[in-house]
Design a protein around this nucleic acid. Structure first.
Lengths: 255, 255
DNA sequence: ACAAAAGTGTTACGGTTACACCCATGC
DNA sequence: GCATGGGTGTAACCGTAACACTTTTGT
């Protein structure tokens, strides 16, 4: 027999219908949303979930257990969606406007999942949401949808579809924060595989900053920081000079 | 007869004992704390409250009305403490660790105010707190204590006493944020009177950054930003050249 | 040999530093 | 005049920009 931890937002239901998070397990009125960034090799992307039978897109999020640190709740949520354990994670803003309170939306999502809930159900209450962004290695991850959604997939940040509630605003603010942190923290290391070329690193910078950088200047600036270790060359089979592979020195976690 | 708005945390009580915030008016488990900075002319200071009969110091804070935007709740709290209306305000972090849940502390505070509350009282619950910092003009303000505290006063940030719960950590993070924002946003203008000397402005910078700056370099850097307007000289009666007074150009609010 | 991309050398430019000097003020 | 602190001129210094050039790779 399998023991299911209280923290898990979903529990087994023999009628195939996923059961809902239980009111008594979570802090009411408080949620989190995470903007999970990955870099495909060319483009900066985020993970979005699509709710069953609605075509609505939303950020992955969740609730905070009554006996759980806020930060731990978010890590748990990320673990469930990505399978990853040690993730670069940063809280950036808490959204608490009344305008984000639209119970009809959650009611429709629940109804599309076969749940008719009473108007007083806690999931239809007003929620204040603490937003985090995470940086993960795109190629290491197979995202898993949650109980209410049938897919979770990558979307280009520079061509995002419409999202529910204020989630577009949340992404926008995440990008701004990421941008302003790109130099202060070694943010980009969390988006790249262990070994990468300077060109790839530059592409991460360009995707985050939203502008082209000068090749030679970038190379020298990065190398002068003395945070990269040079390894063997990467032969791509293309008819030009092979670039060196680099890794970040030490086991810094980018803070 | 005086009408008392639902939002006000305290209502009149004929037995002199202040009555408590009402459970049904506020979002449970959610609070805010504000780190209110002022500059005395020499030192950077924050406002702290001392609870009745406990000698405990804490940041001014409050709860969020059920029909109130989070940001509005904080502005309301600031208005009540400082009397000021248009305040530079920035959210910087949400504190949600279980470690900050210490019901005995709130119970003691309430008891010292003559309230015996049941163990299930909502004010003794776990709270997640959204923290803001505010920048105000020290000389324009006469802080007012709230219902539970008998004083509110300025304390030097570089010599803070012990605070309750995780409030020291909150102040620390506020200072870090302020420091990293000092150049990106025109933060300092909110801490100075309308007209000030460059020396005063430099002192604000030094207080925030925690280091001495070079006089001539600072002067030129600031002037080269082209954000200051020069006015008449300030004669101090001292036996040396009188410095010019400056003001910030336009009516920028420092974002 | 050629094209394409990586890597490096050289000079120019712009902002910051360091230090000197001059200016204004009250005693 | 003198001490004190404000304001400015100047040359050195340093990081970035601009551009040219060399090197490496596969066809």
């Amino acid at each position: 027999m399998r023991i299911i931890p209280t923290y898990l937002a979903t529990i087994y239901n023999p009628e195939q219908k996923m059961s809902l998070p239980l009111e008594n397990d979570f802090i009411p009125h408080l949620a989190f949303d995470s903007v999970i960034f990955g870099f495909s090799g060319e483009k900066l992307k985020i993970l979005l979930m699509e709710y069953h039978n609605t075509a609505w897109l939303a950020l992955p999020g969740g609730f905070v257990g009554k006996n759980e640190n806020l930060n731990d709740a978010v890590r748990r949520g990320l673990q469930e969606r990505t399978g990853l354990d040690k993730i670069y994670l940063e809280q950036f803003y808490t959204f608490g406007d009344l305008a984000r309170f639209k119970p009809e939306i959650m009611q429709t999502i629940l109804a599309a999942n076969g749940h008719q809930v009473a108007a007083e159900n806690w999931m239809l209450d007003r929620f204040v949401s603490v937003a985090y962004y995470a940086l993960i290695n795109y190629h290491e991850v197979e995202p898993k949808p949650d109980a209410l959604s049938d897919s979770i997939a990558w979307y280009d940040v520079d061509a995002l579809p419409e999202l529910i509630l204020d989630h577009s605003e949340i992404v926008k603010k995440a990008l701004e924060t990421l941008k302003s942190n790109i130099d202060r923290k070694l943010v980009s290391m969390n988006l790249l595989p262990p070994r990468f070329t300077i060109k790839e690193l530059q592409q991460v910078y360009e995707a985050i900053l939203g502008e082209k950088l000068r090749r030679t200047t970038f190379q020298r600036k990065i190398l002068s920081l003395d945070i990269l270790e040079r390894h063997e060359k990467l032969y791509s089979g293309k008819s030009h000079k092979a670039p060196f592979l680099y890794s970040f020195k030490g086991n810094q976690m980018g803070n």
